[in-house]
Design a protein around this nucleic acid. Structure first.
Lengths: 129, 129, 129, 129
DNA sequence: GTGGTCTAGACCACT
DNA sequence: GTGGTCTAGACCACT
């Protein structure tokens, strides 16, 4: 289930975007499957419908969902691939951060270690699924 | 020299903070050295003095500079160390990103490669100095 | 209610910071409770919103409140503890003052007396609550 | 000797005031003794003469020194007493701080301990003199 | 001249 | 509506 932290630094609409992408990746919603309606989510999450609407608009733009007037929202065909591509682009963010750290004289090993941990962690989670 | 992009989505005051920290790390300003005055920077960069002031306030709070009414601003003793510690904390950001990528099934090697490149890059720069 | 003295030598934004911390300590606002908006306070207190904003920024930085764009400001979880820790640091100020007085040959008992009075005073207030 | 910390938070003119009062209290300058001239101090300390002038003006106002045009500055008769009275007033500051701490639930003993240490410290110094 | 505070008011992002 | 950023400009304290 989608969990929103009202007190997080991250804007609520971004939390919704990330949450739904995560649910799709986890297979909770399959491609072509219908998503809960904006109104329904609005009530369930206790969030302003405009905020959900904004998140859905962005998910549509990203090719993760298809929104059709009156028909409801569906996971798009190729959604998984779209999400994956998008995330791959985040490697640039990591590189930019790593360059900063390199410039500051932070040892490379500290970063490599962090990445090993990130992958260990999730591989285990993956095995359980 | 400090370069500001007024159209970046990164706020101007953050650009100033990052820029000055970078200049200190690069040795352009040494510890205890006086920085250009807020008004001078304001003119040079074409930025309102209040915005510079905001950046300097944060740099002071971070232990990177010392500001003294009527005296001007100086690189703090221990500024390099303060910056380094702060950046080390960014390893958490990298790890969070890596976990996302891991969950999305992005191969670990792509990330490791990016980090190698980041470090290669700057080590060469370092050798030239 | 928050009272601001525009003619005090203590800057207005500091008065706001202290005032809100005092209100939180007094239980007028509980943790996670929403605070009045910056604009509302601006009107109520007759103070420019920028000044309130400055105070709220510092309160956020201190872990006393959480501010979220479009969401409003809330007393942070752990706010009371944050305030308490911060104040505990003020013991150093007292010690520095006491050392000055000691050096000047002021009798220790005068200070101890002052502290007894400070604590008597508030313990009574506490009993009434 | 008077030591000024250009990087301190405390304004330079306040550092000068405190320093001279301390020297008088320590007997380095006796009542009626002549102080170094503003110009001399300005050179010795590497400080703008206006700043020294401002400090001396305040010391005069406090009855700690007597400044006579062209004649130089002298420690005032009764300077020690003036300083002592002034400092006694600082007990109110301590009390105000103690009240804050009391309200925040900081234990009284922590403060009493700090004061004991302040007095221990200086009594020993006193014995050596 | 140098930094610090404050006001007035515009504009933007988020809900 | 709510907070965040920025500009323009005044005024003050410190050097």
């Amino acid at each position: 289930m989608l969990v929103i932290d009202k007190f997080s630094r991250k804007p609520i609409y971004e939390q919704i975007i990330d949450g739904i992408e995560r649910e799709v990746m986890a297979g909770i919603y399959s491609e072509k499957e219908q998503l809960p309606s904006i109104r329904e989510l609005s009530v369930t999450l206790g969030i302003n419908p405009n905020t959900i609407q904004k998140a859905f608009l962005e998910l549509d733009r990203r090719g993760v969902i298809i929104t059709g007037q009156g028909r409801g929202c569906f996971v798009a065909q190729g959604a998984l691939e779209s999400i994956r591509e998008r995330l791959a682009g985040k490697i640039h963010e990591i590189r930019a951060l790593a360059e900063e750290l390199s410039l500051a004289g932070i040892e490379k090993d500290l970063i490599l270690e962090a990445i090993e941990k990130a992958y260990e962690n999730h591989q285990r989670k993956g095995e359980n699924v």
